[in-house]
Deep mutational scan, measured.
Amino acid sequence: NKFNKEMRNAYWEIALLPNLNNQQKRAFIRSLYDDPSQSANLLAEAKKLNDAQA
């Protein structure tokens, strides 16, 4: 399933972002599970926040 693969990839990328705190990571990951079709958008948002907090 395409969404499962995208979701799994996004999950690990988000989990490993160095500048997000655990609460932020959990919120993004919860959103991934709520709507796997938004994986790419959620990952992009997480990366933006990660960069902003660098």
Rank of each mutant, 00 (worst) to 15 (best):
A40C: 04
S31Q: 10
L42Q: 04
N19K: 10
K48S: 08
A46G: 02
A44D: 11
K25Q: 02
Q24A: 06
N22P: 12
Y33F: 13
L42A: 05
K48P: 00
N50H: 02
S37T: 11
L43P: 01
K47C: 03
F3L: 13
I14G: 00
A27D: 04
L49S: 04
A10L: 06
A10Y: 06
K5G: 03
S39W: 14
S39T: 07
R30G: 03
A44T: 09
K2S: 12
L43H: 02
N21F: 08
N21L: 09
D35V: 10
Y11L: 15
A44R: 10
L20V: 05
K47P: 00
N9E: 11
Y11D: 01
A15C: 05
A54T: 15
I14Y: 01
R26N: 06
L42C: 02
W12K: 14
L20M: 03
N4G: 07
N19P: 00
R26I: 08
R26F: 12
A27R: 10
A15D: 03
L49K: 08
N4W: 15
S31C: 03
A10R: 05
K48E: 12
A46E: 00
F3W: 05
R30K: 05
N1E: 09
A54K: 04
I29R: 06
L43F: 03
Q38N: 11
W12R: 15
N19A: 07
N50E: 02
W12E: 05
A52Y: 10
M7Y: 07
Q24N: 02
Q23D: 08
A44C: 04
N9K: 15
S37I: 07
F28Q: 01
F3G: 10
S39F: 10
I14T: 01
K47Y: 13
S31W: 12
A40G: 09
D34A: 13
A46H: 00
D34W: 09
L16W: 13
A46N: 00
E6Y: 04
N9S: 12
L43Q: 06
D35W: 08
Q38W: 10
Q24L: 06
K2R: 08
D34L: 14
S31R: 15
F28C: 01
N4E: 14
Y33I: 07
N19M: 12
L43Y: 04
A46I: 02
A54I: 08
L32N: 00
L16Q: 14
K25M: 04
D35F: 13
L32Y: 01
D51S: 09
F28G: 00
R8W: 15
R8H: 10
L17E: 01
K47F: 10
N1M: 03
L16M: 13
P36R: 04
S39M: 15
D34P: 02
A10K: 05
N9D: 10
P18K: 15
K2M: 10
N4C: 10
I29C: 03
R26Y: 14
N22S: 13
